[in-house]
């Protein structure tokens, strides 16, 4: 199999969420001594980007997205192990939570899944999470980004509380913060001093890449 044919098959396996096929193709790429970084970028990353586009346009849904993410995660772990020294690159660590008082975690689960699919290490704290818990867990996890979701006009003020508490604790410059949720807007993000606002899961991933250069 030549390289281009292999890359096409990898993309196909990612879109189809075929974990065993994706993994087998990663092993084949290593057996044939192809550049692992090139295989990751042109095969797996291209595939998961197409999955993200199909998810955004409603052609495939969360369970399929997660299957594809699983396929990418296992295969790229194999290829990553073969990448030597400083060419290996981690995308970054993100802590994500739905703020205290808010029980909505479907949207946040989608964001979390898409971030994992794109190579971020994600600590998903779930829903109804107090601000101090988010900060404590971010400290323990060594996160670079804190993402919060609020689905209610009554709970979005917790995102502001996060910004204030980070400043009070002298931790604000240590993290990039990103906010989202149905009532949340770019103006709200600016008003409370968050680093970014994301309207949907795909934008969330892109904004985090912009924030930390993942």
């Amino acid at each position: 199999m030549d390289k281009q044919e292999l890359i096409n098959k990898i993309i196909e396996s990612v879109i189809g969420g075929d974990e065993s096929e994706a993994e087998a193709l990663a092993k084949l790429a290593l057996d044939q001594s192809f550049d692992p970084l090139e295989i990751i970028n042109e095969g797996y990353v291209t595939g998961i980007k197409q999955v993200g586009d199909m998810f955004e346009s409603g052609e495939l849904f969360l369970p399929e997205l997660i299957q594809s993410a699983g396929a990418v995660k296992k295969s790229t772990a194999l290829l990553n192990d073969a990448i030597k020294g400083d060419t290996k690159k981690d995308k970054g660590k993100v802590v994500i939570a739905t703020v205290e008082g808010d029980m909505h975690d479907i949207g946040k689960a989608i964001v979390s899944s898409l971030m994992v699919a794109n190579g971020f290490e994600v600590l998903d704290l779930g829903r109804d999470v107090p601000i101090m818990d988010i900060i404590t867990r971010a400290e323990e996890f060594g996160a670079q980004v804190i993402g919060t979701s609020a689905l209610l006009t009554t709970t979005m003020v917790k995102q502001q509380e996060l910004e204030k508490t980070l400043r009070k604790e002298g931790l604000r410059d240590k993290y990039k913060t990103i906010v989202g949720g149905a009532p949340v807007t770019v103006r709200w993000a600016e008003k409370i001093g968050a680093d970014a606002f994301a309207e949907n899961a795909g934008e969330g991933v892109n904004k985090i890449i912009d924030l930390i250069g993942g």
Partner: peptide
Amino acid sequence: FVLGFHGQ
């Protein structure tokens, strides 16, 4: 939009 949380 009907979210595909199940999908099938």
